[in-house]
C-alpha cells in the first residue's frame, strides 16, 4: 500500500490582507459578554455565512481572567477563516464591545460594533446586527487563491487518553501534523495537562527559544488540579511521548498563553489550554491561522458552539 505524500498538495482558499489564507469565509458575530449571547446567535441565524461564538464570559471578571477573555476575542476575529466581525455587546460589561472593535480596527479587521443598550434593546440590536453582518458578507473579496500546506495551521487536541485513542487516533493525527510541518506549515496543540503531568518531558520537548515560556506554563499550573481531570491522571502514569502522539514528533518551538496568536512561521506550538474540547478548540482557533483538526476517542466528535469559527 503506497502512502500519499503531503508535499506538493494544494487547496483553494480565501486570501486575506495580511497574507494568510482562510479555508472558510465566514463573518463572525462575536458577543463581548454572555448577556448578548442570544442576540448574537439570532443575528447569525439570519445571515448566510455568519457564525456566532456564544460564551459565558466578559461580565465582571478579575485581572488575568478578564485579559484572557479580551485576548481570545481579538485573536478569534483575526483567524483567517473570518472575513469580518460584528462585535455585539450589552453595554455595561467589563470587556466593552467598542473597545474590542477599536482594537480590531487597528489590526485591519473589517469590523462593525453595536450594543444592546446603545441601540435601545434586543429587537433593534438584532435588526441592526443583521444589517451589519449582511454588509460584511457582501463586502467579502470573492477571489480564491491556490495555497499549499505551508499556508495551513492545524489545531490538534486529543480530548482523552483512552486506549484506542493512544493506539490509533493519536498517531494518525500526529502523522498528519508531521506532514504539515515538513511541508512548512504550523501545528498548534492544546492539552496542558499532558505537559504539567510530565514536566521533565515537557522541558526536553521544548526548543531553547521556547524553554522559558514552557517553564512559565509549568509554574502557572503548579499546585492546581488539572481541568481535564482524567487526562491529567492518566498522563501522570505514561511517558510524555505517549500522551502527546497527536502532536507529532517535532519539538515545541513556541508556547502560547490561552487566546494568544501563534507567531512561529513553521513548526509546532503548544497552547496553554486544557484538553477539554470546547475550551481547547477555541484557544486553537485563536492561536491558529487556519484550520483546526481534532483527534478524539473512538468514533464521535462533539461539535461545540464555542469552536464553530474553527470548523
Amino acid at each position: 500500500m503506497s502512502t500519499p505524500s503531503a508535499s506538493g498538495r494544494t487547496f483553494e482558499g480565501t486570501p486575506r490582507a495580511d497574507g494568510t489564507v482562510g479555508v472558510r469565509d465566514n463573518v463572525l458575530v462575536l458577543p463581548s459578554v454572555i448577556c448578548s449571547h442570544f442576540v448574537a446567535e439570532r443575528i447569525a441565524e439570519r445571515v448566510d455565512d455568519a457564525v456566532a461564538t456564544p460564551h459565558d464570559h466578559g461580565c465582571a471578571q478579575l485581572g488575568a481572567d478578564n485579559e484572557q477573555t479580551r485576548r481570545t476575542f481579538l485573536s478569534m476575529a483575526q483567524n483567517p477563516n473570518v472575513a469580518g466581525t460584528v462585535v455585539v455587546g450589552l453595554g455595561c460589561e467589563e470587556v466593552q464591545s467598542a473597545e474590542v472593535a477599536t482594537a480590531l480596527e487597528s489590526r485591519d479587521v473589517a469590523v462593525r460594533e453595536l450594543s444592546i443598550q446603545g441601540v435601545g434593546g434586543t429587537d433593534e440590536c438584532i435588526e441592526r446586527g443583521v444589517e451589519a453582518a449582511t454588509e460584511l458578507v457582501q463586502s467579502r473579496r470573492t477571489s480564491q487563491t491556490v495555497a499549499d500546506l505551508s499556508d495551513l495551521t492545524l489545531g490538534v487536541v486529543s480530548s482523552d487518553l483512552d486506549a484506542s485513542t493512544v493506539a490509533s487516533a493519536d498517531p494518525l493525527v500526529g502523522r498528519v501534523a508531521d506532514e504539515i510541518v515538513d511541508a512548512g506549515g504550523r501545528v498548534v496543540a492544546a492539552g496542558n495537562e499532558r505537559l504539567v503531568a510530565n514536566p521533565d518531558g515537557a522541558r526536553d520537548a521544548a526548543t531553547d527559544e521556547a524553554r522559558d515560556a514552557m517553564e512559565a506554563l509549568l509554574d502557572r499550573h503548579e499546585g492546581h488540579p488539572a481541568r481535564a481531570t482524567r487526562v491529567g491522571q492518566f498522563a501522570r502514569d505514561r511517558p510524555f511521548e505517549e500522551v502527546t502522539r497527536a502532536w507529532g514528533r517535532n519539538t515545541v518551538s513556541e508556547v502560547l498563553p490561552y487566546g494568544e496568536r501563534a507567531t512561529l512561521s513553521s513548526g509546532l506550538a503548544a497552547v496553554d489550554a486544557p484538553s477539554r474540547f470546547g475550551e481547547a478548540t477555541t484557544a486553537l482557533a485563536a492561536a491558529g491561522r487556519t484550520s483546526s483538526c481534532t483527534s478524539l476517542a473512538t468514533e464521535s466528535s462533539p461539535g461545540t458552539r464555542s469552536s464553530r469559527s474553527s470548523k
Binding site: 460564551h55 481531570t229 477539554r276 470546547g278 458552539r305
Partner: peptide, 30 residues
C-alpha cells in the same frame, strides 16, 4: 458541553414547550 448542541437541537425541533439548558461544563472537571 459535549451534549449541549444536541440538547438544544432536540428542544428547538420539538417546540417552545421544550427548553434546553446548554452549558460549557461537565466533560471532565476536578
Amino acid at each position: 458541553v459535549a451534549a449541549s448542541s444536541v440538547a438544544s437541537a432536540v428542544a428547538d425541533e420539538a417546540g417552545a414547550w421544550a427548553r434546553a439548558t446548554p452549558h460549557q461544563l461537565g466533560t471532565s472537571q476536578p
